[in-house]
Design a protein around this nucleic acid. Structure first.
Length: 726
RNA sequence: GCGAAAGUGGCGGAACUGGUAGACGCGCUGGCCUUAGGAGCCAGUGGGGCAACCCGUAAGAGUUCGAGUCUCUUCUUUCGCACCA
């Protein structure tokens, strides 16, 4: 099964900014985090996937081993939280926990805590803000702060003290709580313990705010040293604990074990794994997308649509007008009866993220005419996909969701499959030149490269000219093909001008599949020329050999062949061998095409006539046509018939090289003196070192450089080279 | 900032296991053919040198009989992640 994944073009808006606004809206989530451990662990077994993609997924899932630590509230904090929750509303319910929880991977540095910091969205920050106008202002500023993630990382580490305190879980010492802009609410507990001596961010924060920097780890085998004024990455390295009370003098692993055990004993900590991966919110307020099959009933609550009423179909007469989800305004869609009690109810208008559909379309392909179930037993035969092809932009989302979805279906008993894609090839994107004009006012006008002509000036410099008005345009370099830059290539016009085969051949030839592909009209024309040359070579040959072909005389292997014919036969079968390896083993097509081009060049140079010569030429042309057929199927189909075959080319099996043709009596070896190439000589294949050495010394420049004295050393690689060291 | 990959002619790229650097194609130059051609064919095309030869795979060092390929340092580019506690 080979599936090529089409590029997903989407609205994009919901990926970042829009999500923040929709946080208040109830969303439907898929519990992908339940599979985090499995999805991460199985990456090692995906040997058919590029390392890069596996690394990206591993980073995305982001497993951290660490420890929850609770810092009990001091009296001032307890009082502040109590008054804040009383003032807010009764809905706070069961009261606040009695400690501030943080997550850390470095519990060995627990004695180096000089502050704790919470995110601006943390309840403690909210509570503290009610008591201080300045703090309220700071919290508000942090919350509306830049959502541009690139800025966030380089942002200054700003913070403000709350005046509230917590107690160190082991020493009981009071520690002040700060609100800091570098603490993320969405990771861990939204709060961190600040250890400036051993964490770069905390160091920066402490320096800025004049906080203590107690050093509690020293490098193994080195003396204790107070952390200095400038940050060094060595400070964050694992070492031996110091100044840590009864836990001093322990190495990293022992310190983690002992300190977390002490915390667990007091009920103030627990070792656990933290994931970066979060659950998958699939709700979209969009018209397109699969409706979430739920009904909201005033009496029964959320009721699933019964299987017999599935699928929920989208109305087809709605026009999105930019004012929100049109489904929410469609009475015909909204109004329904509750499946449980029959009373009037409201249909859910959220639709699913389109990544949901792309997570299993390949499973559906194997059972597309099955209307009673999502998939059937044919999935077991066809899946996993043997070779999946898609852009690197799918490295994380689509490919991770699909791995999750396949496991979810497996656990629902729908499949017995774990990984959906055995091998993955991430093909490069297509680049093309960008041309534009910048008007005095307004937007750049992008001009399609097809309408631009490059002219070489008198000084040799190349200017780009718009063919519409013969005036120059600006050159914007190379960029991925996109609508916005108007540098796409219209496939239809390509097909009309050169044919689909030429377009395919160019794309396969221009670069290996993983690399970006630079579009070039000249390159396309080059492939067009090659195909025409091949067409002509086959037909010239067929015309010349018509009589032989009718009499069944086209064959090789009867009478012994001359040197040139033997050489061509060798190249024919050598080419077949190379192309087979390139396609089947290495999956590179540009070199496979190059090899057939070389063979055609050799056929063109081969000018012997007569029946035997025609047979050898026929064989060479057949191999060229066979080798190119995966890339250029239509032309090759025609040429195969022209070469006298009744059977369609697509039904032929892939040929095997003829071992006899590949055997060579004499071979050329290269001769080096002191590792430098000095000549080439012919020797019998299988010649021993002495024979090769003697042959090498017949070469004039080898003799000159090697001199008369006996060599210090001779290196002989049979069949390849002889190196004389003097 | 962290991580990964990659740097080869005028250009796209080749060199698979350490063994002829630049295959193949584009572009360019010269010639032939043609009423003409942006068609076709032939020849040439990394740099230097009349030549013998010398130099050359981002830069520098190292290992080796031999390095584009392996090791180290530096530089550059691209991609990914981005305060993950």
């Amino acid at each position: 099964t080979v599936l090529a994944n089409e590029q997903v073009i989407d609205g994009r808006g919901w990926r970042t900014g829009a999500l923040v606004e929709k946080r208040e809206i109830p969303m439907y989530y898929l519990r992908i985090t339940a599979y985090a451990e499995e999805l991460l662990g199985a990456l090692d077994e995906l040997q058919g996937w590029p390392e890069r993609v596996r690394t990206m997924q591993a980073n995305w899932i982001g497993r951290s081993e660490g420890c929850d630590v609770s810092f009990p509230y001091a009296d001032d904090t307890r009082a502040a939280l109590a008054s804040a929750s009383a003032g807010a509303s009764a809905s706070a319910g069961g009261g606040v926990a009695d400690a501030l929880k943080v997550f850390t991977t470095r519990v060995d540095t627990l004695f180096g805590v000089s502050f704790v910091a919470v995110s601006a969205e943390h309840p403690l920050a909210t509570a503290a803000a009610t008591r201080s106008a300045a703090l309220a202002e700071f919290v508000a500023e942090c919350r509306r702060g830049s959502t541009m993630e690139a800025d966030v990382a380089t942002m200054e580490k700003r913070g403000m003290a709350t005046g509230l305190h917590v107690r160190h879980p082991l020493t009981g010492e009071a520690i002040e709580v700060w609100v800091a802009n570098y603490v993320l609410m969405s990771y861990g507990e939204g709060a961190v313990m600040g250890v400036p001596a051993h964490d770069e961010r905390d160091f920066e924060f402490a320096k800025r705010n004049g906080l203590a920097i107690p050093t509690v780890v020293r490098p193994e085998g080195a003396a204790w040293q107070q952390v200095g004024n400038e940050w060094s990455s060595e400070y964050a390295a694992h070492g031996l604990t110091v100044n840590s009370g009864e836990f001093s003098g322990l190495d990293f692993d022992a310190a983690i074990d002992r300190i977390s055990a002490a915390l667990e004993k007091r009920g103030l900590g627990k070792r656990r794994v933290q994931w970066r991966l979060r659950d998958w919110g699939i709700s979209r307020q969009r018209y397109w997308g699969c409706p979430i099959p739920l009904v909201h009933c005033a009496v029964c609550g959320e009721v699933p649509v019964p299987d017999t009423d599935l699928p929920v179909r989208l109305p087809e007469d709605l026009v999105p007008d930019g004012s929100g989800n049109p489904l929410a305004k469609s009475a015909a869609f909204l109004n329904c009866a509750c499946p449980k009690c029959g009373k009037p109810a409201r249909r859910e208008t959220d639709t699913m993220d389109t990544f949901v559909d792309s997570s299993w379309y390949f499973l559906r392909f194997a059972s597309s005419d099955q209307h009673a179930a999502p998939v059937d037993e044919r999935v077991q035969y066809w899946l996993p996909v043997d070779q999946y092809i898609g852009g690197i932009e799918h490295a994380i989302l689509h490919l991770l969701y699909s791995r999750f979805w396949t496991r979810a279906m497996r656990d629902l008993g729908l499949l017995s499959l774990t990984e959906p894609f055995a091998k993955l090839l991430t093909q490069g994107m297509v680049l093309n030149h960008i041309y534009y004009r910048q008007p005095a006012a307004g937007r750049r006008l992008f001009i399609n490269p097809a309408e631009v002509e490059l002219r070489t000036g008198a000084g040799g410099q190349r200017t780009a000219v718009w063919m519409n008005d013969n005036a120059p345009v600006e050159q914007g370099g190379l960029g991925t093909m996109s609508k916005s830059k108007n540098n796409g290539v219209d496939p239809q016009s390509m097909v009309e001008k050169y044919g689909a085969d030429t377009a395919r051949l160019f794309m396969m030839f221009a670069s290996p599949p993983e690399q970006t592909l630079e579009w070039s009209e000249e390159g396309v024309q080059g492939q067009y020329r090659f195909l025409r040359r091949l067409w002509k070579a086959v037909h010239d040959h067929v015309n010349a050999a018509a009589v032989d072909m009718h009499q069944g005389l086209i064959r090789v292997g009867g009478a012994p062949l001359g040197t040139a014919a033997t050489q061509l036969r060798w190249q024919t079968h050598h080419t077949l061998e190379r192309v087979t390896g390139d396609i089947a083993r290495r999956r590179v097509f540009n070199t496979a095409i190059a090899a057939t081009m070389e063979l055609l060049n050799a056929v063109s140079r081969y000018d012997e006539t007569g029946s035997a010569a025609r047979g050898v030429r026929h064989e060479a042309l057949e191999v060229i046509v066979l080798c190119l057929s995966p890339m250029v199927p239509h032309i090759c189909h025609e040429l195969w018939q022209a070469l006298g075959h009744e059977q369609a080319l697509i039904d032929e099996s892939w040929p095997k090289p003829d071992a006899a043709a590949l055997r060579q009596d004499t071979i050329e070896i290269i001769v080096q003196v002191n590792g430098k190439l000095r000549g080439r000589v012919q020797v019998a294949s299988g010649a021993d070192q002495a024979t090769a050495h003697a042959a090498a010394l017949t070469h004039e420049s080898v003799r000159r450089f090697a001199g008369e004295a006996p060599p210090r050393r001779v290196v002989y690689v049979p069949g390849k080279l002889l190196n004389i060291v003097v």
